[in-house]
Write a protein that binds this DNA or RNA. Structure first.
Length: 240
RNA sequence: GCUUACUUCACCAU
C-alpha cells in the first residue's frame, strides 16, 4: 500500500514537515516503513524551510534504522544541509561516505560543495572539487561550471573565470542565462560595465533573452560607478 | 523511474 507515502506527502504539501516526522515515528512504532521517496521529500521540505539541523538529524536517524537503503538524493540533501550550516568538513565526510556506500556523488553533490567552499572564500578547495569531477568521471554540467565561474568572479579572479568559461565551451557545454548573468555580474563588480554590455550583446546573439536578474545586475553596475547618465541611458534603452 | 543545486540588490551573519 502506498497509504504511508500519501499521508506523509500530504503533510509535506501543507508545509508541515514536523507533523510528518511525528507521524513517521508513529508509523515506525507499528512496524510501517514508508518508501524512501517519502523520506526524501521530507528531507527536501526541511531544507526548503531552512531547517538544516533537523534535516541532518532526520538523516542520521534514517541511517541508524538500517534496512532502508539511502540513495543519492538522500545523501545530497544531507550534504546540502551541512553546507548550509557552514560545516564543510562534515559535508565532505558525507560525500566520502556516499562513495564508501558505492554511490557516486553527482554534479549536484559537487556543485553544492563547491558553492559552499566559494562562499567561505576557500577557492582552492572549490577548485580541487571542480578538478576532481572529470577524474572521478562525473560530467560537469552548466551548474557546475556556473558555480565555479561565480566563485572566481566573486574572488576577483576574472581571468580565471573567463578561462573556466573557455573550458566550458571547449567541453561543449552551452552557457545559459545564469552563465551570462554571472559573467556580466563579475564585470560589473569590477567596474568594467562597458565590457559587461558587450557580453550582454553576445548573449542576445546566442538567442538568450535577458531577464530580471540581468537588468538589476547592470543597474547595480552603473549605480556602483555613480554614473547617473549611463544609468538613465541604459534604463531608457531597456524600456524600449 | 519520481523529488534536490548555480546568477543581482537589500537584510542577516561576519
Amino acid at each position: 500500500s502506498n497509504a504511508p507515502h500519501l499521508i506523509l506527502s500530504s503533510y509535506i504539501d501543507l508545509n508541515r514537515p514536523f507533523q510528518a516526522i511525528e507521524i513517521l515515528h508513529k508509523m515506525r512504532d507499528v512496524g510501517i516503513s514508508p518508501p524512501l521517496l517519502s523520506l526524501n521529500r521530507l528531507l527536501e521540505s526541511l531544507v526548503s524551510q531552512r531547517r538544516y539541523k533537523d534535516a541532518l538529524d532526520l538523516f542520521s536517524e534514517i541511517q541508524n534504522w538500517g534496512g532502508v537503503s539511502l540513495d543519492k538524493f538522500t545523501y545530497n540533501k544531507a550534504v546540502q544541509s551541512a553546507v548550509k550550516l557552514g560545516d564543510l568538513e562534515m559535508a565532505v565526510r558525507l560525500k566520502n561516505s556516499m562513495e564508501g556506500n558505492r554511490m557516486k556523488p553527482d554534479s549536484f553533490t559537487y556543485s553544492v560543495l563547491m558553492s559552499g567552499f566559494c562562499k567561505e572564500r576557500r577557492l582552492d578547495d572549490a577548485r580541487k572539487l571542480f578538478d576532481e569531477m572529470p577524474e572521478k568521471r562525473v560530467a560537469r554540467n552548466q551548474v557546475a561550471y556556473n558555480t565555479m565561474i561565480d566563485g572566481l568572479c566573486k574572488a576577483g579572479d576574472l581571468e580565471g573565470a573567463f578561462s573556466v568559461r573557455e573550458q566550458m565551451l571547449e567541453a561543449g557545454v552551452k552557457p545559459n542565462l545564469v552563465t551570462y548573468n554571472t559573467v556580466i555580474g563579475g564585470l560589473c563588480r569590477a567596474g568594467r560595465v562597458e565590457e559587461a554590455k558587450v557580453v550582454l550583446e553576445e548573449m542576445k546573439e546566442q538567442g538568450l533573452a535577458p531577464d530580471g536578474y540581468t537588468c538589476s545586475i547592470l543597474f547595480d553596475g552603473y549605480s556602483r560607478l555613480g554614473d547617473s547618465d549611463a544609468l538613465v541611458g541604459f534604463f531608457e534603452e531597456t524600456m524600449e
